[in-house]
């Protein structure tokens, strides 16, 4: 890891990003002055509790919500010009959501679900990337079987559904994948499978991840660097080991000590 510190190009760069909802007295700062960059090939963790603004940031990065100030560079090019989202190369950025129950269309067959993102691509690329061999290789890689392709989402367990969602994200050969609480709805033993798979896929496909979670242990296990969000602001940022070993901010300390641990019984939070 250390060797890579030498100037790796950032894949995405947020510069003083701000998001305000509402107007006048009802104005809410969902995100204020958020700046960070994610380098090619790293997993960047974003942690915070509900209302901290981490999902708003994900929406801004994916083009679902426009920032009210600041800029975001993807591969050096601005993603937003005012309220206008400058679409990057389609399929280059993908997202996996928390709840596969609601992120998969219940009336679509698995094959159509996985191939759907390709509709955004030009026909030539669509044909290449959507070939039978590629599709079968991909579903085998995420741990699904060929006969699963003709089934509907409700026939699968939570873990299998998340594998479908991962296959859907990877069909376009993305460089950058946003994982928004990808294992929060899963059982511990299923979570272990999915986290292992995500790590393997990252290595094999040289992916860059933005990993959003409220679970400190998952962030520690998955990420290289991380940012802690609190009330719309990034209060601390650094390598995962730095933040876990020497948390600087009071909020990070509270977060760490509130986490029930298997082996330390009853730690008083620092606040």
């Amino acid at each position: 890891m250390l060797g890579e510190v030498i100037r790796v190009k950032p894949i995405i760069e947020l510069i003083e990003v701000q998001k305000e909802y509402g107007s006048g007295t009802g104005r809410i700062q969902a995100v204020s002055q958020a700046s960070f960059s994610i380098r090619q090939g790293e997993t960047f963790g974003l942690i915070g509790e509900s209302g901290s603004g981490k999902s708003t940031l994900a929406k801004i990065v994916t083009g679902l919500e426009h920032p009210t100030a600041g800029s975001i560079l993807y591969d050096g090019k601005p993603l937003w010009t005012g309220k206008q989202f400058n679409r990057i190369q389609p399929g280059d950025m993908q997202i996996v959501f928390q709840d596969p129950q609601s992120s998969l269309d219940p009336r679509m067959r698995v094959k159509d679900i996985i191939l759907e993102p390709l509709h955004a691509l030009p026909s030539q690329a669509r044909k290449e990337k959507g070939s039978e061999e590629r599709l079968h290789a991909l579903i085998a890689r995420v741990g699904l079987k060929p006969d699963h392709l003709s089934r509907f989402p409700h026939e699968f367990s939570g873990g299998q559904r998340q594998r479908i969602a991962i296959a859907r994200a990877l069909i376009t050969d993305p460089a950058f994948v946003i994982l928004d609480e990808p294992t929060s709805a899963l059982d511990v033993s299923v979570q272990a499978h999915v986290l292992n798979l995500l790590k393997e896929l990252k290595r094999e496909r040289k992916l860059t991840y933005l990993f959003i979670s409220h679970n400190m242990s998952v962030i520690r296990y998955m990420c290289d660097r991380m940012a802690v969000m609190y009330k719309g602001k990034i209060v601390e940022m650094g390598t995962v080991s730095d933040i876990f070993d020497n948390p600087a901010q009071a909020y990070t300390k509270t977060l760490l000590s509130s986490l029930p641990s298997l082996h330390q019984k009853k730690v008083e939070p620092h606040v």
């Binding site: 272990a192 986290l195 292992n196």
Partner: peptide
Amino acid sequence: ALPDLADPDEPLLA
């Protein structure tokens, strides 16, 4: 299977 005490360089014991 818990990531809590796992070594990030090793796969989780699923």
